[in-house]
């Protein structure tokens, strides 16, 4: 589970065994990870896994009880490098009574951008995100989704090298989420390093080069997306039926063939049992009389990996607790 070697080995963010305890529980425990320059890095985990705490420690908003946080190769902290970092916190807010454009200019100024430059960039991005007509309105007049877009713009006005986004897609409609994804991909192409947290695996799967899954404050898995899928191993098959697939039920429930089945509705993702041959499965399905619409060998989805890994972690934890 070592980080994959990257063409440019420069580490933009480097966490070394950081631990954060709150009264009564450990939020993050001995977490190490490093983010190379230029990648889109997904920090994944279930609710309460410690994603936000980890990000807050990256930003130096919280000080880890143990361990070291290095940004751009030193440990001076997020505020020291704030001009190079754009940050969208999970708990986001704007000055409600201020005009949209004014808020953006002010927030850019706190990053050291001159007013005139900030104004020009704000106008550009407001245009790009369909908010140009709202630039002179007060923030409180905007819908929640619009406010979120304004917040996203505010993280980019100083053209940061590193963008840290905590749950950027939460609460966005599909159209706005798509716009956001496009911009993230575009920025990444331009060389910006992007770290974002989410529990939406499908989004992460589409845009991440690199993922790190954490659960209960510990790292479960860390690596390049392709590598992670390869390491996870196993044979995975996607099947879909034209009818309800009732005739295939016996076959799918045969634990000698299928270890696990996730029914996503339109199709099901099957993890085959050790040593089972997909060819046998196909034959059995055809013989059962089920009408197949899709039968495809696939890589395990991030979703599947997430469930396997986090589920195992939780079970293990349960076992530990019951033993104790």
């Amino acid at each position: 589970m070592s980080p994959i070697p990257h063409t440019t080995s420069e580490r933009i963010v480097d966490l070394e065994r950081i631990t954060k305890r709150f009264a009564g529980h450990v939020a993050v425990s001995e977490l190490s990870l490093s983010v190379p320059r230029g990648v889109v890095f997904g920090l994944l985990g279930p609710n309460g896994a410690g994603k936000t705490t980890t990000i807050r420690m990256m930003m130096n908003i919280m000080i880890p009880d143990e361990g070291v946080v290095r940004l751009f190769g030193d440990d001076l902290g997020g505020r020291h490098h704030s001009a190079r970092i754009g940050y969208l916190p999970e708990e986001r807010g704007l000055y409600k009574k201020m005009r949209v454009r004014e808020v953006l200019i002010f927030l850019a100024e706190t990053k050291g951008v001159a007013r005139a430059v900030a104004a020009k960039k704000a106008d550009h991005w407001l245009e790009r995100l369909d908010l140009a007509d709202w630039r002179l309105r007060k923030v409180e007049e905007l819908s929640k989704g619009m406010q979120q877009k304004v917040q996203f713009i505010s993280t980019m006005l100083h053209s940061p090298e590193l963008l840290i986004l905590d749950e950027p897609f939460a609460g966005l409609d599909p159209i706005n989420a798509q716009t956001l994804k496009d911009i993230i991909v575009e920025l990444a192409r331009g060389g910006t390093t992007i770290i974002f947290s989410t529990h939406q695996m499908d989004v992460a799967e589409k845009i991440c080069d690199h993922v790190c899954i954490i659960a209960r404050g510990r790292k479960v898995l860390d690596g390049g997306l392709a590598e992670v899928k390869q390491v996870h191993g196993g044979t995975h098959v996607a099947v879909a039926f034209e009818d309800g697939g009732e005739r295939a039920a016996d076959t799918l429930n045969d634990r000698c063939l299928v270890a696990k089945a996730d029914d996503y509705g339109p199709f099901a993702e099957l993890a085959l049992a050790d040593g089972a041959d997909p060819q046998d499965l196909l034959e059995r399905l055809v013989r059962s009389g089920a009408r197949l619409r899709r039968f495809e060998r696939i890589e395990p989805s991030l979703h599947r990996i997430f469930l396997d890994k986090v589920g195992a972690e939780t079970e293990q934890h349960g076992a530990e607790v019951s033993r104790a």
Partner: peptide
């Protein structure tokens, strides 16, 4: 209080002392 309540404070302290 306003900055705390609107939660903009977290963005502010990431760039201002």
């Amino acid at each position: 209080i306003d900055e705390k309540q609107t939660r903009i404070i977290e963005v502010l302290v990431s760039s201002l002392k």
